[in-house]
């Protein structure tokens, strides 16, 4: 435990240093892409607990993000809306009006998303595989339809004017936290129980694991960090709208996970970075060759080819570690250690 706190403190200090370095020396665009990568990492790593470790297939991550984003914005942002009864604009002042309120607001957003995670997790326990995927997708759609109809938080307009609280420090502080938590989780009794459920639910039950409880816990955990990521994204873009959290967003996160390898946290991280940075890198290529839209076509093709030729993703269920790198670099005798089974 003491060690864990030690690592946390050291890495937060590193993140603070990196933040200072980025702010003072690096092009804003690159910083923006790095920040977006950080948010994607939080999303992918948290989804990995539900989809990768526990073997449930959730397509509702964007719904959890939306809840986190809107709830945290509720606490930090002045809500202005047109009141039809009074036929004029009404403003609600935010509860936390200083930067100090940011982290509490994010955490409240995360908790709200976690509650939604429990609400989704409990009734959908009976469902498996594809059915669960579609049910969670339906949940995400219902969330966006509800937001669209909720005038106080902007409805279809979205909610503008979120304060620009997100920066590299906060984003990567949460990256460090989610990565560390998930890492320890994988090694804990809880994590082992999740993997047991993934491998064989019946056998796991026989061994005395309460599969239902574990599954709900996985949903709560994943939803909490999705909510945090939503809040961070909202305060980075400074505007949120229901369209940002449509089901394509959920699919994007799943694709990140799948690219890296379901069940591998390092894989999720690599997948998140690649799929966030690559489209940005292709931005210029696209306008130069004058074929707008190629990027999404390429993205889809990569997905299909990956599934056909390497369905386990880049890393399979293995984790990237120095040992693995060490094995990869000299020789290539044990090559392909990345996960070919």
């Amino acid at each position: 435990m003491g060690r864990m706190i030690g690592i946390l403190v050291v890495s937060l200090a590193v993140v603070l240093g990196v933040n200072w370095f980025l702010d003072s020396y690096i092009d804003q665009y690159v910083v923006r892409v790095i920040n977006m990568c950080g948010i994607s990492i939080i999303l992918a790593v948290s989804l990995n607990v539900i989809n990768g470790l526990c073997g449930q297939f959730s397509l509702g991550h964007a719904g959890f993000m939306a809840i986190g984003a809107y709830v945290s914005a509720w606490f930090t942002t002045t809500l202005r809306y047109f009141d039809e009864a009074q036929a004029k604009y009404v403003a609600i002042e935010p509860m936390f009006s200083s930067q100090w309120g940011f982290v509490p607001a994010l955490i409240v957003g995360g908790i709200a998303a976690a509650i939604a995670g429990a609400v989704v997790g409990i009734p959908t326990l009976r469902l498996k595989g594809d059915y669960l995927a579609i049910a969670t997708l339906g949940f995400g759609e219902i969330v966006t339809i509800m937001i669209t109809n909720f005038e106080t938080i902007g409805g279809a307009n979205g909610l503008p004017g979120l304060p620009a609280y997100s920066n590299t420090f906060w984003i990567f502080a949460f990256v460090v936290i989610v990565v560390m938590f998930s890492w320890y989780l994988q090694r804990s009794t809880f994590g082992r129980a999740l993997i047991a459920i993934r491998e064989n639910e019946l056998a796991a039950e026989v061994m005395g694991i309460s599969a239902s409880r574990m599954k709900v816990m996985a949903f709560i955990y994943g939803a909490f960090f999705a909510g945090i990521a939503g809040g961070l994204l909202g305060h980075l873009l400074q505007t949120i709208s229901p369209a940002t959290f449509n089901f394509m967003k959920s699919i994007e996160v799943v694709v990140m996970l799948v690219l890296g390898g379901l069940g591998s946290m390092t894989g999720a991280i690599v997948g998140a970075i690649v799929l966030t940075a690559l489209p940005e890198a292709l931005r210029d290529v696209e306008s130069e060759i004058g074929l707008v839209g190629v990027r999404m076509v390429a993205y889809a093709l990569v997905l299909i080819l990956l599934m056909i030729f390497r369905p386990q993703g880049i890393f399979g269920q293995k984790e990237l570690s120095l040992k693995l790198l060490g094995r990869l670099i000299p020789g290539r005798k044990s090559g392909n250690a990345g996960g070919e089974e």
Binding site: G129, D130, I251, V255, V297, L301, L303, I304
Partner: peptide, 14 residues
Amino acid sequence: RLAALITAIGVSLF
């Protein structure tokens, strides 16, 4: 089945 589902999503996007 998961791999197949993801491929299906890929084909749809494509």
